[in-house]
Design a protein around this nucleic acid. Structure first.
Lengths: 215, 215
DNA sequence: TAGATTGTTAATCGATTAACAATC
DNA sequence: TAGATTGTTAATCGATTAACAATC
């Protein structure tokens, strides 16, 4: 069923549409035109219409878009109407932050397991999920239909752990380790490199400082 | 001094170059050609040369690039040779994760302060920095030459806190709150929206699942 | 029906890749 | 010098914006 490839640029914007539509919905707004939405979001109306039309015609001429409907549809596109079993490897502050992230469950991400190397954490529960030791990881993945693994461990361990997870059926890695993972191309890797984000910020603030230094 | 604007696409790639060059340096590699680097990083050699030449000619024909030199130069471009005073607002798990991020100091980011609303955290120290209450924030920012503020607080508070920080001299916001901040355009905002990152992952894994469902 | 606004095609803009002369 | 590889210009590709006919 020939589906044209959708660029990651478009996909990267969908969650932001979803967020704005959610807020509009909360605010009781029933319909919105691409033009009104473009003003709120500070993007062009053209881009909104182009982006949405990659997935189908969700609007109606002369009316605009029904907020609730569009919100639901984008949710479906993002796969938020389905459940996704997720585990977190590495229960440091960052791993715990993710585990405590409340919106998880409401969006269909089911926290199935937490893993760490620190024996003092064994059995400690976060959000009702007990922390397990790494030697249980492989069997757990095999037996619990785990789709997504968040990796919040040092880069020295990340590569081998990721390989093992994928070998045992994990389909996607949410990678917080400061390294690239080279995995089979059917595995989804979503990187969150905080240090790189901070360096980008550093570049921009430094550039700005230089350009405006005058005495 | 007419400086041509450099696209965020290029800037976004610099930290990755920096990381690879750092690893090469650790590995004792002295020089590298754009071609060799392109193979490791899985980008085109052309892109590497184009990207670098936005900032100057760092290589030498017939030789390639000196790893150590290029690493240092990219560090300078990213502003990592200068100190940046940073504070963290919101000392939950995520705020603590950032505070504990060791590489901070080595890259010139000086953690000056931690702030939270929770009175039970008052005075508790993370990495030697005591947690302060929010009512001290304004004066602290004014008196401590704070350049960057990391916001790891709920979105309901983020907008007003950001506005106050900027009013009192903060130049850049590292924004982890699930909201857009509209601030004067001379303020740098670097967003890290974890939920949006997870939704992107969700989209990709869902798409893949659908495309390969056959029985 | 008239007005509004989409869906979609065409035009523009920017980013990536290819090619090659310059040069170490 | 010959070989290697950059820096840079030109060609291509893709993404964004503009325009407008279709239609609610």
């Amino acid at each position: 069923m020939e589906r044209k490839e959708i660029s990651q640029a478009v996909i990267g914007r969908l969650p932001r549409y979803y967020r704005y539509l959610g807020e509009l919905m909360e605010g009781g707004v029933e319909r919105i035109s691409s033009n009104d939405l473009s003003k709120r979001m500070r993007v062009t109306a053209s881009q909104i219409r182009q982006d949405l039309n990659n997935f189908g015609g969700f609007g109606q001429q002369g009316y605009g878009y029904n907020v609730k409907y569009l919100y639901t549809e984008i949710g479906k596109i993002l796969g938020l109407d389905k459940n996704h079993n997720i585990i977190i490897i590495g229960v440091g502050n960052l791993g715990q932050a993710l585990a405590n992230y409340a919106a998880f469950e409401s969006r269909g991400f089911i926290l199935k397991g937490l893993f760490d190397v620190n024996p003092r954490l064994e059995g400690v529960a976060v959000r009702g999920v007990p922390i397990r030791m790494m030697d249980e990881l492989k069997d757990f993945v095999i037996n619990n239909d785990i789709e997504i693994a968040a990796l919040t461990i040092p880069k020295s361990k990340a590569i081998e752990v990721a390989a093992m997870l994928v070998e045992n059926g994990v389909k996607a890695i949410w990678n917080f380790a400061h390294t690239d993972l080279s995995l089979p191309e059917d595995v989804i890797v979503e990187n969150v490199h905080l240090s790189e984000s901070l360096m980008k910020l550093s570049y921009n603030v430094t550039r700005y400082r230089e350009e405006h230094e005058e005495e």
